[in-house]
Computed example of a mutant assay.
Amino acid sequence: MTEKPLISIEALARRYPRHGGGETTVFEDVWLPIAKGEFICLIGHSGCGKTTILNVLAGLDQPSAGVVIVDGREIAGPSLDRAVIFQGHSLLPWMSVMGNVAFAVNSRRPDWSKDRVRAHCQKYIDVVHLTGSEHKKPAELSGGMKQRVGIARALAIEPKMLLMDEPFSALDALTRGSLQDEVRRICTETEQTVFMITHDVDEAMLLADKIVLMTNGPHAKIAEIVENTLPKDRSRTNIHKHANYYALRNHLLDFLVTRSKAFTAESGANGYDPKKPPIVRPGARPVAVETGPPEPGHAVSA
């Protein structure tokens, strides 16, 4: 990364007091630059501190060490520059779709008139395909529609960083797939910077520009950063047809199943530097091309 990152996670650590004395270090020495417009997915086993890192980015938790810099300023608490979409929709049940989105916009733009706020909210309600449902209350909406309201509300405040904590995990497969497509379309069109936690390898491959792999906790670190080698115009219906699909998927699964457990023991021998975790680009192996029968006197490799 040559240009200055929009977000810089530097030497981040989180420790908790241990019963009986001492401390438990969930993660430590986490370094990660995020460029403007990048979609980052963080993957790792339970206990490696994924949600805690997201909460620190949101300003909802304080690190034990290290800092997070956003657009040149250190995070010191929650801010409307950072919007969070949680696993649950977190809507205000007594407000309509329009009311929930407008509540966030009014907080961000207190000087705007009611008409301007309504027009701005309508733009993002339309973006998530909820046109016609503006006056419905959350109790009248399906689970997928509620998450769409949450996405519209987050995008409507036009944050510098969108944080998502497994926002589709509680939805059925069809609804989840539809929302994944919507989020990819919206974030690509708006060049929204996104930091997302997921346990779903296929979801990360579809959405992310880079997939960050965490080692197992305690003392978790970033093991490597995987650049997505699939085409930018990928979709759920064609992602499996690309040559790099299985190479990328197998690399991610191999880390989660095998390499994450052995990483700590092997990192010293590999010259691992947590400040500069390795960047890898898994790709399909080239296919041998038949060029005709071998010339006389030339051996054929097995």
Rank of each mutant, 00 (worst) to 15 (best):
K137W: 07
E158Q: 12
R109I: 06
M161N: 05
H298D: 10
R184D: 15
G20A: 01
M98C: 09
D172M: 10
I43K: 04
A11V: 08
Y124T: 04
R148P: 08
K136T: 03
W112H: 08
R234K: 14
P159D: 10
V84G: 03
H242R: 11
I197V: 09
G297C: 02
L207I: 07
G283F: 12
G37V: 02
G283A: 14
R234T: 14
I211N: 01
H251E: 15
S133K: 11
I53G: 01
D233S: 15
G88N: 15
D273K: 04
A152S: 12
L230I: 04
G49A: 02
Y246K: 11
L141C: 09
T193I: 00
T188Y: 05
K146I: 06
N106K: 15
M145S: 11
K4S: 15
A173L: 11
S113T: 15
G59C: 07
G292R: 05
A288L: 13
K261E: 13
I151P: 05
A154M: 03
V128C: 06
D126T: 10
L54N: 02
V70K: 11
E166V: 00
R259W: 09
V56S: 02
E189A: 15
I69T: 14
T51P: 01
P33S: 05
P296L: 08
W31N: 06
D115H: 13
A102Y: 08
E158M: 07
S113E: 09
A139C: 12
D200H: 04
L162Q: 01
K146P: 07
A262F: 13
T291D: 09
H251R: 15
G144N: 07
K50H: 01
P93Y: 04
R18G: 01
I53M: 06
N238M: 12
A173G: 09
K210C: 00
L32C: 04
G88A: 13
G177D: 06
G99T: 02
T190P: 00
K275T: 10
L253H: 13
R118A: 14
I34H: 01
